[in-house]
């Protein structure tokens, strides 16, 4: 959570002056809603906002969601739990390719339905190979698992050495202390350098305006997580931090009908995830790229 320190005062001053000048202009123009727009335009980077500014920004977001979606959405700002670094493991011999995790993720994280986004891709793989180029991302069968196939769900690996974080030209994406790589949707300029950098296809861009079903909006949201996104920004899996920072399990874990997923604190030697890492034969995808993913695969 390092933030600008030296130039902080002067920069803040400049912003204040700019904002005030524009605010005055707006007041004289008597345009309602104009000052909200200005506040949004000049909104600070999340990591550089004071607690009061964050509070104001969240309140404004809630108002805007109420106006745009007609739903009372709560936007939280829950902080990382000290001493916790999240890790995820997935038992590929248990995954049967039902895509229940995909469905739950879309609903829980307010993912746009049209155009449709999904954080999780379940790859149908041929037995006997781990060649991703031979995988089928769009399998549609009457039943799964199909004979001769196994299933490999891929989503954000929350890399410790994340190439996407390095690529971002405006520091709009960063790794939180609990290891989750997040995006400030109000800071992202939409250049998609992170998408080019990600080796797992885990980052998704809102090409069009995201649409949500009015009745299917998850109203318990996090400012860095599942709150409804604007168009033209990049978003990604956050290990459901609006749930996991409160001790709950991620939605994909909860939805998995075969118990293939293990989630927990990597820093707790007594955690299940640690037991899996220490007693199972695990692998990580594209480990040769040295991105240090925090998502492991294992099998029985």
């Amino acid at each position: 959570m390092s933030s600008g320190d030296g130039p902080r005062v002067s920069r803040r001053g400049v912003l204040k002056v700019l904002g005030a000048a524009c605010g005055t202009a707006a007041a004289t123009a008597c345009a309602p809603g104009y000052s909200e727009w200005l506040q949004r335009f000049f909104q600070e980077h999340y990591q550089r906002m004071t607690p009061e500014e964050v509070k104001d920004a969240l309140a404004r977001m809630e108002r805007e969601y109420q106006q745009q979606l007609g739903v009372e959405v709560r936007v939280k700002d829950s902080k990382p739990i000290p001493g916790v670094r999240f890790g995820y493991a997935l038992n590929i011999s248990k995954c049967k390719g039902y895509r229940e995790c995909v469905r739950a993720c879309i609903e829980e994280n307010n993912l746009s339905r049209d155009p449709e986004l999904a954080y999780i891709r379940v790859l149908e793989m041929d037995n006997g190979t781990l060649d991703l180029e031979r995988s089928d991302h769009y399998y549609e069968h009457e039943t799964v698992p199909q004979p001769g196939k196994f299933y490999l769900p891929v989503s954000c690996m929350q890399c410790d050495n994340a190439p996407c974080v390095k690529a971002c030209p405006v520091k709009a994406t960063w790794a939180e202390p609990d290891g989750v790589v997040v995006v400030d949707y109000d800071w992202c300029i939409g250049c998609r350098a992170c998408q080019a950098a990600c080796p797992y296809g885990a980052r998704h861009f809102n090409w069009g305006t995201p649409t949500l079903p009015p009745k299917g909006i998850q109203t318990d949201t996090h400012v860095l997580g599942n709150r409804p996104r604007p168009r033209g920004v990049v978003e990604k899996c956050t290990f459901c931090l609006h749930r996991t920072r409160e001790g709950r399990l991620p939605a994909c874990h909860e939805a998995c009908p075969t118990g293939a997923r293990v989630f927990g604190n990597l820093l707790d030697p007594a955690s299940e995830i640690r037991w899996v890492l220490e007693h199972k034969t695990v692998f990580r995808l594209k480990e040769g790229l040295k991105t240090e993913p925090k998502f492991w695969y294992y099998s029985d």
Binding site: G4, P7, S10, R11, V14, L15, F41, H45, R48, P169, V170, K171, A172, W187, C188, I189, G190, C191, R192, F205, N206, P230, R231, G232, V233, V234
Partner: peptide, 17 residues
């Protein structure tokens, strides 16, 4: 090519990041 061209000022050192 930018999704949010109006946020171009985020690229300015000090003012942006």
């Amino acid at each position: 090519d930018l999704g949010h061209p109006e946020r171009g000022w985020h690229l300015i050192p000090m003012l942006g990041r």
